[in-house]
Structure formats: C-alpha cells, structure tokens
C-alpha cells in the first residue's frame, strides 16, 4: 500500500517535470522563432552577396565584410533619411504629447458647453484612419505647395485620439483637491496644466510618447504619397526604394539598411520595455 503510494508520487513528479520541460521547450523554440529573422538579417548584412545567394550554405561566411554598410552610406542618402525620420518622429511626438495631455486635462477635469460633442469627434476620428482620407489630404497639401516638406510629413500626426483617451483616463484619477487648492490660490488652468498636471502624468507621457514615436518612425503610406524628392525621404521610403528597384540582387545592402533601422529601436526597447509593452498593447493599432 505504502509502496504503491510512493511510486504514484514519483510518477507524478516525473510527469510534472516532463510537462515543465515540454512547456519550456515550446516557449524557448517560440522565442527563438521571434528573433531568428533579426539574426538572419544581421548575419546577412556582413556577408558578400555571392555568399547570401550561394547554394552551398554557410551560416557564417568565411569572408565576412563591411562592404554592405560602406555601400549604403556611399550610394544612398541614408544619413539624411535617418535625420529626416528622427526629426519627423521627434517633432510629431512632442506635439502629440503636448496636445493629448492638454486635451486629456480638458476632458477629464473641466466642464464646458460642447465638451461631450468634442470628445465624440476625437474618438470618432479613430474611425477615419489615414488610408481613408489620404487622397483629399494629399490634394490639400499639394494645393498649398507643401509636397516634399517636413510640414507635410508631420501635419497629420499632431494629436492622437488614443493618446487623448489614455491621458484623460490617467488625469481623471488625479484628486480634485490638488486642482481646487491651486484654483483658490488664483492659478489659471494654464498654470494648473503646466505646474500640477504635467509633473503627475510622467508615466503616461512616456507611454504616449513611445507609441507616437514608433508610429511616426514607421509611417510609410503617407510618406510615400507626399514625398518624391530623395533628400526628403524617410527611412521606410529608402528601404522601399532600395528593396523595390533591385530586388534580391542586393540582399546584403538591404539587410545592412534594415539593421540600422531596426537595431536602435530594439536597443531602446530593451531599456524601456515596460512603456513599450504598455502603450502598444493598449491600442494594438498600427499607425
């Protein structure tokens, strides 16, 4: 009897270990599948093209080279594209954080005529993503001769409905006493917004900021429509042009380009994981 029980316990333990093992095995394979494409990208970016398309496969080429990187800096305006992308994303992020938080305070704490209607417009704008209005927006931009300008690249991304919504929720949780006390001291709502609200919503600023930055950094369709001059191109456009015109023939160079687009973002992600995950998983929408 006793012996039986012991055996049963043992087999239980073994099956538990076995299922633990399978669990981790599946997850490790899964995690690996998530980064394999990036490893492939990095390895390929250091290979001569001959080795990438060679039938005899070597994971690490014996004659690895920096030629691909030299080539993209030599033959493409990659530095300029980098600066364009960073500039557009930074300016759009700054304005979106400012406008979304100001709107968040407006909708969370202030009462005025037409507030609900205005909030409805903001939320309703989610129903009209860029794809829907891209033709009229382009025609408007070209009518005021702003094609190929930073203004055109940035203009549609100055506020974000999801940002407003997140900010409103967050500011709603700030106790009214703080605000009332300041108001009795004679502070205007501008003062309250800058001196009380902004310092209290830093985590939310980080979330909305990262979200906006990622969206504008990756934006493709609008940039494709509104930019035709090489010097105004952003990184996704350069990638598009390079990968489109030459196909797989210049595999090495296109992998070098994607490496310098992707790796900085992954490094920043490694440090600020929490904000990335929070922001992106709350909205789930692509820019």
């Amino acid at each position: 009897m006793l012996k039986n029980k012991k055996i049963k316990l043992n087999s239980n333990r073994i099956s538990r270990y076995a299922s633990r093992f399978t669990l981790h095995l599946i997850l490790i394979i899964g995690s690996f599948a998530m980064i394999v494409p990036f490893l492939w990208m990095i390895i390929s970016s250091f290979k001569p093209n001959i080795d990438i398309i060679s039938v005899n496969f070597q994971l690490f080429s014996s004659n690895w080279t920096l030629e691909n990187y030299q080539k993209i800096f030599r033959e493409m305006p990659i530095l300029r594209a980098y600066l364009n992308s960073l500039f557009v994303a930074t300016v759009a992020t700054f304005f979106t954080v400012l406008s979304s938080s100001a709107a968040g305070y407006l909708f969370a704490k202030l009462r005025f005529w037409g507030r609900d209607a205005l909030f409805f417009i903001v939320l309703g704008s989610i129903m009209i993503p860029a794809e829907i209005v891209i033709i009229p927006l382009y025609l408007m931009i070209s009518k005021v001769s702003l094609v190929n300008s930073y203004t055109a690249l940035i203009a549609p991304f100055l506020i974000n409905a999801f940002g407003v919504f997140l900010m409103r929720q967050f500011i709603y949780g700030i106790p009214n006493e703080n605000i009332e006390a300041a108001r009795i001291d004679g502070a205007s709502d501008w003062r309250i917004y800058f001196n009380i609200i902004i310092p209290l919503i830093k985590p939310c600023i980080a979330v909305v900021g990262i979200l906006t930055f990622i969206w504008t950094y990756d934006n493709f369709l609008w940039a494709l429509v509104v930019v035709s001059e090489t010097k105004m191109m952003t990184l996704p456009l350069i990638l598009g042009r390079y990968a489109m015109t030459e196909g797989g023939v210049i595999a090495g160079a296109s992998m070098a380009t994607t490496s310098i687009v992707v790796i900085p973002v992954l490094i920043v992600y490694a440090f600020f994981q929490r904000f990335f995950i929070k922001g992106l998983s709350m909205t789930g929408i692509k820019a």
Partner: peptide, 11 residues
Amino acid sequence: FFAPVVTSLIA
C-alpha cells in the same frame, strides 16, 4: 515575444 512588435513593419 514582444520584440518584433516594436520593429518597423517595412523593415
């Protein structure tokens, strides 16, 4: 698992 989410779709 989240790493690919933050990277550029075009890249």
